[in-house]
């Protein structure tokens, strides 16, 4: 067996080249290449069906790839699946906790799959329960937990083998805003102590909160790559004015807005006016007597980047 590459901070821990997954005639992942450094927080951003989860599963080798190469800690997950997965913590898109078991038992059972002894797991389970803020619920059946609690438990479970690399597939989808913030806080702390995070999401705010660097994926291809800030700088303006004139009038006023904006985006319910000075643009618009029903000046976000790159909004 080839030697296991030692993991050094800054070194790439995941390297994918020309990664491809084909289902029938659907190219779910269509030749994507990326590299993730140790300690980095890396995002895969894209709409549902873009190929994010498929890519994620190929990192852990739980999905056979059709083509390309993949190295995780220097190993090919297709050939050395158990070794690769021993390096990983995986938080799947859908929780698959055993609802009949207690919170604590879910952690212990999972730790056993890594061959970890009970002596280690007894204390580890308590630490993880504390991390997941579930101390009160340790002996409760998992079925009694809220969505946010289950998610935190799933993350705690993924840490049982002290992985260097944590794969999170849509960690906060379906959670209310408060639960999301609690979860982001937990993930941020893990990042601080050097755990590499790989996060898929279709939430722009999540990507901006968590990711040092990300790739924007659509139809299985990489549309753009960079830090959230760099992507915004490159593909959008500093600010955006959102104006609504009502569904009937939106189309009619577009012509009169063109010279106000660096770029315009006409959505069914509103017009996005891209400009570096939002307030000035809005003043100009109202000065022309266009009187939008509502208006909002905001900073550009990754949502705008995605819209620019694909012509579509991320979450319909």
């Amino acid at each position: 067996m080839p030697p296991v590459t030692s993991v050094v901070p800054g070194d790439p821990i995941v390297v994918a080249e020309d990664l491809t997954k084909v289902y029938g005639d659907n190219r779910a992942v269509d030749g994507i290449s990326f590299s993730i450094s140790q300690g980095e927080s890396f995002g895969l951003l894209g709409p549902n069906g873009a190929g994010k989860s498929t890519t994620m599963r190929m990192i852990g080798g739980t999905l056979t790839r059709t083509g390309g190469t993949m190295r995780v800690a220097g190993l090919d997950p297709a050939e050395r699946g158990p070794e690769v997965r021993a390096h990983l913590g995986v938080v799947p898109q859908q929780d698959n906790l055993d609802e009949e078991l207690t919170v604590r038992d879910n952690l212990i059972v999972y730790g056993r799959y890594f061959g970890l002894p009970h002596s280690y797991l007894r204390t580890k389970a308590d630490e993880l329960i504390e991390f997941a803020q579930l101390t009160e619920k340790a002996k409760a059946k998992t079925t009694a937990l809220s969505g946010g609690m289950k998610r935190r438990l799933t993350i705690a479970r993924a840490l049982v083998n002290e992985p260097k690399l944590l794969l999170l597939d849509e960690p906060t989808t379906g959670l209310d805003p408060q639960a999301r913030h609690v979860l982001w806080d937990r993930l941020f702390r893990l990042k601080e102590v050097g755990v590499t995070l790989v996060v898929t999401t279709h939430f722009m705010d999540e990507a901006e909160q968590l990711c040092d660097r990300l790739i924007v994926i659509d139809h299985g291809r990489i549309m753009a790559e960079g830090s959230p800030r760099a992507l915004i700088r490159e593909h959008s303006t500093r600010e955006v004015v959102e104006v609504r004139f009502g569904a009937q009038r939106n189309a009619a006023v577009v012509d009169q807005l063109e010279d106000v904006a660096t770029r315009l985006e006409v959505l069914p319910d509103r017009i996005l006016v891209y400009t570096d000075d939002g307030e000035a643009a809005l003043e100009e618009i109202t000065g022309r007597g266009l009187n939008p029903i509502t208006s909002l000046v905001r900073r550009s976000s990754l949502e705008d980047v995605f819209l620019r790159l694909t012509g579509r909004t991320l979450v319909d």
Partner: peptide
């Protein structure tokens, strides 16, 4: 929590 040093090397777990 993230690295107690009490976990065997990945290849041992595998």
């Amino acid at each position: 929590l993230a690295a107690s040093g009490r976990v065997p090397a990945p290849e041992v777990m595998a």
